[in-house]
């Protein structure tokens, strides 16, 4: 555990808490892509199966359980409790266009052809593109609430901080996982346009609106 990973994990945690708080306080999930949230639930459910096969640390198990459970709660809130506020008309990204190619790639390019490893690889690849339905939705509506922007900034920062963690681990521990690094870089690149808008608009007190 190094400082980049710890701050990255805390940023990830903060993102999820921000999203749940936004939905709970406003009793609404307007502006949030349910499809991205379904993908995140799928990401956690397929990645953390090693909860049942190995124990790494109390921190590790607690975080995994937190991510799995909160992602399921988020999907439940969007599709059941606050369904009336869900903006389905703008959430039109086709999930099969992500899940099918990512599943195929996980079968072809992995570290080890075993069920657990393939599911982990699928999860890593899927996470890198899981935000696309949310970004697609924002490009359709042309704007995002400020709290949603904070959520996305925390969520994007987490993987960017993991990249610093991987640089650190490569130099000081000799640890290098090509699949995680490439997918993590792809994931971070997808956020760059949003990061730019967040820094130039939201941090200056303006609402995030996209150029037409």
């Amino acid at each position: 555990m190094n400082i980049f990973r710890l701050i990255g994990d805390m940023s990830h945690l903060l993102a999820i808490v921000l999203l749940l708080l936004k939905m709970w306080k406003t009793r609404s999930c307007a502006g949030i892509s349910g499809k991205s949230q379904i993908l995140f639930a799928l990401v956690f459910a397929t990645r953390y199966l090693d909860l049942f096969t190995a124990f790494i640390s109390a921190y590790n198990s607690t975080m995994k359980l937190f991510f799995i459970s909160t992602s399921l709660v988020t999907v439940y809130l969007m599709y059941f409790k606050f369904r009336a506020t869900y903006d389905a008309n703008h959430d039109t990204f086709r999930l099969e266009f992500l899940v099918v190619p990512v599943g195929g790639l996980a079968f072809l390019v992995n570290h080890n052809f075993s069920p657990l490893e393939i599911l982990w690889t699928f999860s890593i690849y899927l996470e890198s593109v899981a935000i696309l339905p949310q970004l697609f939705m924002m490009s359709k509506t042309g704007e995002a609430e400020t709290i949603t922007s904070h959520y996305l900034f925390a969520l994007g920062s987490y993987r960017a901080l993991y990249i610093l963690n991987w640089v650190f681990r490569y130099y000081f521990e000799g640890f290098f996982d090509l699949i995680a690094v490439v997918a993590g870089c792809v994931q971070t690149i997808l956020y760059c346009d949003f990061f730019y808008l967040y820094i130039t608009k939201v941090l200056k007190g303006k609402k995030l609106s996209l150029p037409a």
Binding site: H12, T53, I56, H111, N112, L116, E117, W120, Y162, D177
Partner: peptide, 10 residues
Amino acid sequence: CNSSHPKDEL
């Protein structure tokens, strides 16, 4: 590559 399970990262 350190590739085997279990994974210590989240």
